[in-house]
Every structure is written in structure tokens, then in C-alpha cells.
Amino acid sequence: MKKIWLASGLVILLALGMYIGLRTSDSKWAGVDESVVEKFAIEAKRPPHEPLINIEHGDLPLLVFLLAGAAGGFTAGYCFRGLFPAKSES
């Protein structure tokens, strides 16, 4: 019980500490893709392009996720016995 409370307390403290730190900081919190990779790429005149298949149009990402989820779910269900075979008795 003690361990659970200690672990939970640590997680909450960490989360709150990070939340307060991030909210009060002036930093942009850019990813290293932006702060390192893109910085050097732009300096070398190779700025990043748009994704080759850009799904960022309105609700299109939702539709694509729905279709991918449905296709993945159907495939997993269709191949269920192959994916999760029964354990042998031996």
C-alpha cells in the first residue's frame, strides 16, 4: 500500500512540477525536429516539404483514422486464430 501511495505521489508531483514549469516558462518547447533538424536543413537550403500524402484537410484525418481502424480491426478479427492460437496442452 505504501509503495502505491509513494509511486502515485511521485507521479502527481512530477506531473504538477512539469505542468507549472512549462506554463510559466517563456520557452517555445519546440521539438528537436524543429530546433535541430529543420534549423540545419533550412540553413543548408533544404527546408522541409509538406508530407507526400497530406491528410491535414478538415475532418479528413478522422475519416482516415476510421478507415484504418476498421481495416485493421477487420484484418485482426479475420486472422484471429492465426494471431492468437490456442495454447497446446503439452
Partner: peptide, 14 residues
């Protein structure tokens, strides 16, 4: 609730 980003080499850089 905090915005964040990540890495990997992006399209078109190489």
C-alpha cells in the same frame, strides 16, 4: 494540456 513536438527527419530535407 501542454503542446509538444517530436523528431525524425521530415519530408524533403534529404
Amino acid at each position: 494540456a501542454v503542446p509538444a513536438f517530436a523528431m525524425h527527419i521530415t519530408e524533403g530535407i534529404l
